[in-house]
Amino acid sequence: MSKHDSTVEKNINFMGQRFIAMVFSGLLLIASIGSLVVNGLQFGLDFTGGLQIEAEFAEKADLEKVRTILAESGFADASIVYFGAETEVMVRTQQELKKGVKEKILSALEASTDSGVTIKRIEFVGPQVGDELRDQGGIGMLFALAVVMAYVALRFQFKFSVAAVAALIHDVIIVLGIFSIFKFDFDLTVLAAVLAVIGYSLNDTIVVSDRIRENFRKLRTGSAVEIINTSLTQTLGRTLVTSLTTMLVLLALFFVGGELIHAFSIALIIGIVVGTYSSIYVAANVLLLMQITKEDLIVPVKEGAEFDDLP
């Protein structure tokens, strides 16, 4: 036990800042929810439906120029990307295929280049899929949360499942909120990323919770705050290394992965940062708020098991 006490002294006082963290999280959540309510999300064509135009330029297309000219002609929402080659451009806009729209886009594209441009394909992508996916996704999400809560309550304790789900909701809302605030395109790949953030956030929170549970059972002395600080300090190394390795991959995706994976990697990068933060501050904070005690975690049957392990 003396060895444990020596480590307790070197503990980082994470929970000392817990009220600051609470305010910080609160502000982030308010800003996110506010923006989600006011601005909503900038749904991509996968969700909203709209026009998809494939154009071929005679020379290398200047995307910036195309973007500004299209914005001037009333297509401010258009997303413009290279499509395979630098002479081929894909324009996506959430407008409907009405009479004259094609001509308007064509003339805007022509104005952006000195050499010729032809429209290879123009088509309307139906929006209804998005609705169905969104509805299903919402219900599914709630269901998933319920099952996860049940599992954590079973393996740990009810207070831990509240903490885990709180951290999860915290992370998802903030990722969505940042997408809303900065008006990034929310398409299907971003949805995949948000789902991944859920997985990551859970993973992180469970690892920290696991240590908290262990220490509550093992350490005889110390207040709840101290035990949580000990646990967080012990897992800090692991938390940082895992976040770092995941981040290395995501940075590679972000810088090298190409246009289509861009939004995906941004969402995950935000998610990892927020997820790491929340596993330290949100989950533990909720546990303290719910006044976790040793009694919550007593194992009735295997009481003596821990002592056998001690040298």
């Binding site: 998933a144 996860v148 599992y151 789902l195 859920i198 997985g199 859970l202 993973n203 469970i206 690892v207």
Partner: peptide, 10 residues
């Protein structure tokens, strides 16, 4: 524990 929880979500 960590992986099972994520697996449930998956």
């Amino acid at each position: 524990d960590a992986n099972l929880t994520t697996l449930i979500v998956a």
